[in-house]
């Protein structure tokens, strides 16, 4: 989708955080990305690698990505099952086809390590 522009947004946010905390170098950035966020992790990592080369604050920083799971809740019996993103064909308890997705759409900056 818009991984490069999302990385740009992230860098603006990192610059603000560094300023607020009077830090001059980002060591690591931890992100949480869900399978339903629309973000392709490889493209996000690629954008981070490319753009950080031109950024004194972020050059050499490590990007840590934690992926989340989606919870699918059965519309009939309420049973839940976790998935890494592929929608199950049916409820694991009663085979009902209609399942509601919960969570999994995160694109969250969790924490930043700076010096």
């Amino acid at each position: 989708m818009h991984e490069i522009s999302l990385v740009q947004n992230l860098f603006h946010q990192l610059a603000d955080l560094a300023k607020q905390n009077k830090m001059s170098k980002v060591i690591s950035v931890t992100m949480q990305i869900g399978p339903l966020s629309g973000v392709v992790i490889d493209s996000f990592q690629f954008g981070f690698d490319i753009l950080s080369k031109d950024d004194d604050l972020i050059r050499g920083a490590q990007l840590i990505i934690n992926t989340t799971a989606v919870t699918y809740r059965c519309s009939k019996c309420g049973a839940t099952q976790q998935s890494s993103g592929v929608k199950p064909d049916g409820c694991s308890a009663c085979d009902e086809q209609f399942l509601f997705a919960e969570g999994g759409d995160e694109l969250i900056l969790q924490k930043v390590e700076m010096e």
Binding site: N21, I27, E106, L107, V112, E113, M114
Partner: peptide
């Protein structure tokens, strides 16, 4: 070094 917890959506 300092670790800042942000927890904000992009």
């Amino acid at each position: 070094t300092k670790t800042v917890d942000v927890h904000e959506s992009l």
